[in-house]
Design a protein around this nucleic acid. Sequence first.
DNA 1: AATTCTAACTGACAAATGTCATCGTTTTTA
DNA 2: TAAAAACGATGACATTTGTCAGTTAGAATT
Lengths: 234, 234
Amino acid sequence: MSEHTEQRCENCIVRRLNTLKALTKEELKNISDSKETKTVKKGDPIFNEGDRLNGVFCVREGVSKLSKMSDNGKDQIVKLAKRGELLGQRSVITEQSTNLSAVALSDMTVCYIPKSHLKDNISNNIKFTNAILQQMANELKFADDVIVNMAQKNVKQRIAETLQYLEHTFGKDEEGYIKMILTREDIANVVGTAKEACIRQLTKFKKAGWISTDGKRIKIVDHKALYNTIEGFE
Amino acid sequence: MSEHTEQRCENCIVRRLNTLKALTKEELKNISDSKETKTVKKGDPIFNEGDRLNGVFCVREGVSKLSKMSDNGKDQIVKLAKRGELLGQRSVITEQSTNLSAVALSDMTVCYIPKSHLKDNISNNIKFTNAILQQMANELKFADDVIVNMAQKNVKQRIAETLQYLEHTFGKDEEGYIKMILTREDIANVVGTAKEACIRQLTKFKKAGWISTDGKRIKIVDHKALYNTIEGFE
DNA sequence: AATTCTAACTGACAAATGTCATCGTTTTTA
DNA sequence: TAAAAACGATGACATTTGTCAGTTAGAATT
């Protein structure tokens, strides 16, 4: 009895947040027996573009960026994954090597679940398969929106939108600062622009009184102004 | 016996190209009995952004663009769907209204399949559900690539890539012209730029001898040069 | 065949963005 | 704690892209 009960998947709160919630207690027990909990330090990779994954990583604590190196040497961040999200799900489904890298943006705890156990459940538990289907359909819709934004919005709008997204996704601390600290370069890599352009735009927002900063920390002061910018109401 | 046999799903060649191939002959017969074949004229909509879809459209002949209107009034084309592709699959899965519009780029024949029949199969036939899962996982991967390209590549590179994509996807006629004719504006809407910028870039490619044109028709002459441009080898 | 309409194309200019260089500050590491 | 590395910030400038205005060519309609 060396494991605490909360280290068992069937008791893990995180599971409620992802597709694993569609599994029965019995199935979760099987998965839990084969899973492996790992800690990952800020800045360390969880996996790299091109890796063949033999399982998925369930994020228990911390945040990871999923990014892809572009030909011009910039690292485009496609997604930020937090508590409850499963990394590598797609690669396991398609049996292809992953097209993204995952790097920890903070110290993390992740559970590694070997794919054999998932595969069994995908083949047998239609409820589980359906949950994954729902999730992927939603991700696909979200991806369409990102494509449209990338193509049609300018850097100013995309930065405003990213700030709004970060606050919405990660919340605020007691002082109102966004509870997710990214470097300016990482923000630029989400937005798809140069870090200088990103810094300059943040400075403009600051001067306009729409945001305030303290070191890397950012606080949205005027939500409405940011919203209007995003929507293109100048 | 009013229908020709090729109008029955179970005999339709198109089915081999999409997830319906995972259905049994019996299931296909049921679907075929409830499907409705429609013709759509070039320029006509199949459905509009925000519509609630009560079924999917299987493209039997012709090409449709799937696009989304952006706030600045531009119509971003997210996907071109040809023979064999299913439109509206995601909306049916998530039960949400569609986030994209579908408009015919050529005269089309599409089969409308009411969702009730698909839903039944999704719940009961794990092979079918898995096929959809595979397909969505691949689409998601493709979407990631598009996001990275949109964010990191310039207009010149994206136009070059679009030409390559069009030739690869739709093939060439006897004279070597791409067998898919888009207006310059539609090309611009795939690339996510203004039509003037698109036209100018095509002119440059033409002057460099990398492509040649005849009216709207485009022929890639120097594949290698285009490829180098896409990859950023100047 | 004349007219109308749409799309292709071009020029001129403004605005947005990328690149390079530099410097002070903060964070990390030895 | 000192040194090194990473990061934030800003200026200067080149390049890319968007916008507006207008002309030409071809297709569709009458």
